[in-house]
């Protein structure tokens, strides 16, 4: 059973840049998929399409059998959470309020006008914070936390939503190695315990190999590799990270030697 099915999706931006040149794939429910690829390969665009933050120029996306379009955007988003590279928290709100915004999808605007939440939503938010180990920071302002802690708040917000899918767009790109390890471990644990489908964009090949069930390699808007981490050979990495017009790329050799 697949949660996400992507069918010949293309994306062309108004400036003419073609970020995705026909992507078709299925992502199984409860899987941990990592998307690898150089900057500008279209990884972020793909993830943003899955959440409806961008609208595809062609092709279709179905999440849990339902096609993604403008009409049911909010409904589908309520089951698709997103974790961002820059955390995208509301700095001036308390940590717990940020987590509570994950509940908004399930609540009408009437209570929101008065910043009111249900008690059950508060319980869910506190549970989510406990999961990421930030119960003691609940009432701090979000911008008073360190980067690693802010990303954990981001994950708690995603969890509070009770999603089927969590999309993470380079969640560890602005973090130190220890925090990165922690965040990836959290995402993995969420997949294992809650059976939530996790799709992560990464720059770190070693993290991808260790945490993923499946790796999708992208280069200039196309899928160039798709398989389990064991199949990610040096040759495959070359295909993923190759640069246009470079017959022999010294930087590539050097970078992959340590991957």
């Amino acid at each position: 059973m697949s949660t996400i099915s992507i069918e010949s999706v293309t994306k062309r931006f108004p400036n003419g840049f073609e970020a995705l040149k026909g992507i078709s794939t299925e992502i199984a429910a409860g899987s941990f998929t990592v998307i690898l690829g150089p900057s500008g390969a279209g990884k972020s665009t793909l993830l943003r399409l899955l959440n409806g933050l961008e609208i595809p120029s062609g092709g279709s996306i179905r999440i849990a059998g339902e096609a993604l379009d403008k009409g049911n955007l909010r409904k589908l988003r309520s089951s698709v959470a997103m974790v961002f590279q820059q955390f995208n928290l509301v700095d001036r709100l308390s940590v717990v309020t940020n987590v509570l915004t994950g509940r908004l999808a399930h609540r009408s605007w009437v209570g929101s006008v008065f910043y009111l939440f249900r008690t059950e939503d508060m319980d869910i938010a506190q549970q989510a914070l406990a999961r990421v180990g930030l119960t003691d920071k609940a009432w701090s302002r979000a911008d008073k936390l360190s980067g690693g802690q802010q990303q954990r708040v981001g994950i708690a917000r995603a969890l509070a939503q009770r999603p089927k899918v969590i999309l993470a767009d380079e969640p560890v790109a602005s973090l130190d190695p220890v925090s990165s390890e922690e965040i990836m471990g959290l995402l993995r644990e969420i997949r294992d315990r809650d059976g939530i489908t996790v799709v992560v964009n990464l720059h770190q090949v070693d993290l991808a190999k260790r945490f993923a069930d499946r790796i999708i390699g992208m280069n200039s808007g196309r899928v160039v590799f798709d398989g389990p981490p064991a199949e990610l050979s040096p040759q495959a990495l070359r295909t993923i990270y190759q640069r246009e017009g470079m017959e022999h790329d010294n930087h590539l050799d050097l970078a992959l030697a340590y991957a």
């Binding site: 959440n51 933050l53 909010r74 409904k75 988003r77 309520s78 698709v80 959470a81 997103m82 961002f84 955390f87 995208n88 928290l89 509301v90 915004t101 994950g102 908004l104 999808a105 399930h106 009408s108 605007w109 929101s112 006008v113 981001g154 917000r157 995603a158 939503q161």
Partner: peptide, 11 residues
């Protein structure tokens, strides 16, 4: 960040 989690227009 808030929009991606399914918050409505006013929210």
């Amino acid at each position: 960040g808030v929009r991606a989690h399914g918050a409505g227009w006013l929210q």
